[in-house]
Write a protein that binds this DNA or RNA. Structure first.
Ligand SMILES: [Mn+2]
Ligand SMILES: [Mn+2]
Ligand SMILES: [Mn+2]
Ligand SMILES: [Mn+2]
Lengths: 232, 232
DNA sequence: GGACGGGATTAGACGCATCTAATTCATAAG
DNA sequence: CTTATGAATTAGATGCGTCTAATCCCGTCC
């Protein structure tokens, strides 16, 4: 049996691998799980002994197939719970993350199945993150870019929003920036502040927020008159 | 913060106090939480240091007001969860206990409130056990007796059924013996086997099962012809 | 190539919940 | 009053997850 702490480490390693690929540095895990580096080293040894990660000293860690399956299952629990809380228990999208983080380790397989059933096996959680299917294969995330990497004139569709900052989420909900929304990038200021146009007006978002919004680009503007003409 | 283990001990002490009053013996707690006696002694010390129980060596333990409030809150979580699982997630009454036992320690106050809201602040769980109200005062359990203490001829209403044996619950559900059902006691055999009449026929229940069914007596038979005429 | 600096690991410790074995206590029986 | 019995506690140990302090390793910069 795996402890809930181990499950959190595996989940952390999985999402870091997704973002920047293996091997995963001790320090990046430490940051995500909010533990010290020696604590992480020691837990990685434990996980390696159990065959859930492989690792080479000073090189970082990588999930094994088994470790990845566990991580995906925890992620499925987390995202199903978030979706259920939002749809059936009147939670707002900035409240679901914390509750799901606690419950994800304690629900049975029966609970998972029944929640998925009443929701109709949903494909994405309230933040737009894909919910792994019951076979626990890695969910195919379509390619997205952070809003902070877009340029003025782009028309983009919001795909996912990081669920990790409640205040940001509450603000974005209010601003009408949620998964599925189409927004037009009006301006990208020097320090990363992004101004977008949505239905109810323009919103300026600080860089930290723009980084946590992932979008798919619907339209890049035709190059303006006086621009360099290179590259389609 | 209290660990989930501590919460389980407090819950155990509470229900034992309800059954047989304080002080509660170390061994009876050990039996309920499935730990050894020294483990319980040590945990009782910890709980006493935190002001949740009082105790005198070799005498047993007793909940303080604070300890009782914690126990009642855990019990509220447990029974609300059982009710929710049965009503909204298609669990049968023999499946809810285990799941609720795991989740009861991990739900937030917001979750508790929302579950209670969507259910309409229910008064009893699927086994007939009273759900403590949000003020966490001890729920008023009306006086009941175990079915095993009844006599042939009694007409009784099932009040509560212990939720601790899944197999018994599945059997009783099938037999049509659930809280609210009126049954007639047909016979009490020497070794405690109780035969009752319900809508769909007669059922014979072994003593262990009859002990776990608590009832209120609706009717005692008028004393038969040749009986001792004493007492109304 | 040698020193530096930052990230990683090792060393050593702690608190919690748990166990088994040994001891102590309360009391019921003689 | 003494002893036997069973329950409770103390003693001592273990595994886990965590920490701080000390040490180690690797790539960079002179
Ligand atoms: Mn978690
Ligand atoms: Mn999410
Ligand atoms: Mn429990
Ligand atoms: Mn119950």
């Amino acid at each position: 049996m795996l402890s809930d702490v181990m499950e959190d480490y595996l989940k952390a390693i999985y999402v870091i691998e997704e973002e920047s690929g293996p091997p995963v540095a001790t320090s990046s895990i430490a940051e995500r799980v909010e533990k010290t580096a020696p604590t992480v080293t020691s837990m990685l040894d434990t996980l390696a002994e159990r065959g859930l990660v492989t690792r080479e000293k000073y090189e970082g860690a990588e999930l094994t197939a088994e470790g990845r399956t566990v991580a995906i299952e925890v992620l499925r629990h987390h995202r199903l719970l978030e979706t259920y809380l939002a749809e059936r228990l009147d939670y707002s999208w900035d409240e679901v993350h914390e509750e799901a983080d606690a419950l994800e380790h304690h629900i049975s397989e029966a609970f998972e199945r029944r929640v998925a059933d009443v929701l109709g096996e949903p494909a994405a959680d309230p933040h737009g993150d894909p919910i792994p299917s019951p076979d626990l294969e890695p969910p195919g995330g379509e390619a997205t870019v952070p809003l902070s990497a877009c340029e003025a004139g782009d028309r983009v569709v919001v795909a996912r929003v990081s669920d990790r900052d409640d205040a940001d989420l509450a603000y974005l909900d209010d601003a009408g920036v949620t998964p599925g929304t189409t927004v037009a990038v009006v301006d990208v200021a020097p320090f990363g502040m992004v101004t977008v146009a949505v239905d109810d007006g323009e919103q300026s978002l600080p860089e930290s927020v723009a980084e946590s919004i992932h979008v798919t680009v619907a339209d890049t503007p035709e190059p303006d008159s006086a621009e360099t003409g290179a590259g389609a």
